[in-house]
């Protein structure tokens, strides 16, 4: 095995580009004590080719030399260190072993503590596939969470009164959303803003209003029903975009925001009542929605079929009802096996 470990392989390994098998053979190679020198030598070369800093050594050297001069050694090095400095005495070994044991226990406790702390400080609400949830936040705002979505917010201090002269410098009420949710934000007497953060970097800042946020892998969209909200992305950081009721904002793949008008912003929240609003919606888009909301893997026989569209408003309580509905509308067949659905002509 050892003959395949060379500098190129180790460079790839440091850059995180080797297969688990190669990693295993590097591990074997490292168990040979003599290879350690080579490992560090190549690590050093790798690092030299990818320097992340031009830190000034001269300055630090001067400071360190100064420090050494300022504290004359109370003991000569040869008195302190055993003949072979790499091996401590038995006592030292015992101390380091028990120290390590204690450190391990502490670490386990800390890990548990951390798990617990996160659960304590933040409340995270999840919805499974095909499930929606209504919840009231500590400030009185209400949120309806669509299927396969996550909402996370601080458990303490959320929406608490703050005394500040202007709204812009207050603690905002911040929630993090992945998935899809409809918000009805309560306006607080101190004008405290409410911010929805999405993973794609789109932030929605509101004072008190009703709107729907769609933030999934496929797209990020915001539809405003009433009130006013302000959108910021990385590009529009300095000039936030103001939305008016009836606006639909879409974040494209390049991170650009596009604003269009929609006559029915409430259609974006139709899922709250188990209603599905389609408007020239292709079967391909419906398939993406089935995947997001119900965790179904959908295959469509051919692209002609995928491009057929559905329009109208329908009610379906679960995935099967929706599948039947689609099949009837398009006069097509579908087969469902567990989480796999295929549509055929």
């Amino acid at each position: 095995m050892e003959d395949i470990i060379n500098k190129a392989v180790l460079f790839d390994y440091f850059s995180g580009r080797v297969s688990p098998l190669q990693k295993k053979s590097i591990e074997n190679w490292l168990s040979e004590q003599g290879n350690r020198e080579l490992y560090y030598q190549w690590l050093h070369e790798w690092e030299l080719n990818r320097l992340q800093t031009n830190a000034n050594w001269q300055h630090v050297y001067d400071k360190t030399a100064q420090r050494i001069n300022d504290e004359p050694l109370s003991l000569q090095p040869s008195d302190v260190l055993p003949q072979n400095p790499w091996q401590l005495g038995r006592l030292g070994e015992w101390i380091s072993r028990s120290g390590m044991l204690a450190a391990s226990i502490v670490l386990v406790l800390m890990v548990c503590g951390w798990l617990f702390r996160d659960a304590l400080l933040y409340q995270t609400i999840y919805t499974g596939f095909g499930e929606t949830k209504d919840l009231t936040l500590p400030d009185g705002s209400t949120v309806t969470l669509n299927a396969n979505s996550t909402l996370r917010f601080a458990r303490f201090g959320f929406g608490e009164w703050t005394i500040a002269a202007d709204a812009a410098h207050q603690n905002p009420r911040t929630v993090e959303l992945t998935g899809e949710a409809d918000f009805s934000v309560r306006h607080l007497p101190d004008h405290q803003p409410f911010v929805v953060m999405t993973p794609k970097g789109l932030n929605v800042t509101v004072l008190g209003t009703q709107f729907t946020v769609f933030s999934r892998e496929r797209a990020t969209r915001v539809a405003l029903r009433s009130g006013r909200v302000q959108l910021t992305t990385q590009q529009t950081m300095l000039q936030p975009l103001m939305m008016q009721p009836g606006d639909l904002a879409t974040l494209n793949r390049q991170g650009k925001l596009a604003l269009t008008r929609t006559a029915h912003p409430e259609a974006m929240a139709a899922w709250k009542d188990h209603r599905f609003e389609f408007e020239q919606t292709s079967l391909r888009e419906v398939a993406a929605m089935l995947h997001e909301n119900y965790g179904l893997a959908v295959t469509i026989e051919n692209s002609q079929l995928a491009n057929r569209t559905i329009s109208g408003s329908f009610t379906a309580r679960n995935a099967n009802e929706l599948l039947q509905l689609i099949a009837q509308l398009l006069q097509i067949n579908y087969i469902r096996e567990n989480n796999h659905v295929s549509f055929t002509d």
Binding site: E37, Y40, Q41, H44, T64, E71, L73, V80
Partner: peptide, 27 residues
């Protein structure tokens, strides 16, 4: 990094290095 250099200097361990300095410092 500064602290590793300082300790190596202060402890006098540099006089007993059996590997390369590079190996000790990186490790």
């Amino acid at each position: 990094v500064g602290e590793v250099f300082y300790q190596l200097w202060k402890s006098g361990a540099y006089a007993h290095i059996q590997h390369t300095y590079r190996t000790y410092l990186y490790a």
